[in-house]
Design a protein around this nucleic acid. Structure first.
Lengths: 153, 153
DNA sequence: GATTCAATGTTGGCCAGACCAACATAACAA
DNA sequence: TTGTTATGTTGGTCTGGCCAACATTGAATC
């Protein structure tokens, strides 16, 4: 709504036709929705935290490095996000006895509960984000965008 | 022996199925390609600069505020980017005589030449980005992603 | 066994891109 | 006139991703 009326024809066609331009706008809209959603119902947690909790819930205890690999988060950012989550009691870190340089990260019951809450938020945001598309189009889109994200050639 | 499963199943399905997650990954890949492309052949210019030059070339002289609206760039960022472009002689700013608070921005011949160079770079990147898709799929994708970017409901 | 090599967690920084708040000025509306 | 809106500018903030360096540890190589 912060847009003006006859802006649609004002966007340079050179940009409007570029897939990367539209992807970046879509990304912007998606993160905007996610940010406001997390802000309203996320108790101050953000994308990073959700990803980490989801990985832990699905795969069981993992090392920090493994967590980073699975969620696409850099090791250094994993450290910071985990510290935040740990301070909230949503997960626990313990040294791997057979691998003393490694931390084993385990999600707690509170963490699971929090994750389920966030799941609802994120699901709702998917619906909002995909609202312009029909169910068939959504499936189509997910297939295409995944291939593009992978970059598999 | 560190479990040598195939790591393809390592990404949490909770994330893999979310459109916003794949959009964000695709955006990451796109900006990565754009960054390396601009770094190699962009003479230090970036996305902001390309957008502004493209808008000027297509629409003729514009005010800074109009430029911002058409390219989706905030007024303050427009100012900074224009200063950079002006210092390179790619455009000129002049005060609108009938509207002294307004600057009229005009692209120069050098600006057009530079834009054409960048056009090639950006076009090449589109091909690279869209490589995983067939021609028909690319058209399909552009339609869908544009609708999602617009958020028109 | 000793010596390289790779992996891990942590700290501290950087960057792009998008935003926002405030301000002075100018144009316009009432 | 006064009040409101638009413009350009400055100077920030925030998020997400990234990188470099370091100490430590396990593994590999000789």
């Amino acid at each position: 709504m912060p847009t003006t009326h006859h802006e649609t024809d004002a966007v340079p066609t050179r940009l409007a036709q570029r897939a990367t331009w539209q992807v970046s706008r879509a990304y912007l809209r998606a993160t905007g929705l996610l940010n406001t959603g997390f802000e309203a119902h996320g108790r101050g947690l953000r994308g990073y935290h959700y990803r980490l909790l989801a990985a832990l819930d699905e795969s069981g205890p993992l090392s920090q490095a493994e967590l980073g690999r699975r969620t696409g988060i850099d090791r250094s950012d994993v450290t910071a996000a985990l510290t935040e989550l740990e301070s909230r009691g949503l997960l626990a870190r313990s040294v791997d006895p057979e691998h003393k340089r490694r931390n084993i990260v385990t999600i707690t019951a509170e963490g699971v509960a929090q994750l389920l809450e966030l799941d609802d938020v994120v699901s709702g945001i998917q619906d909002e984000f995909l609202a312009p598309l029909s169910a068939a189009q959504r499936r189509q889109f997910l297939t295409l965008i995944t291939r593009l994200a992978d970059g598999s050639r």
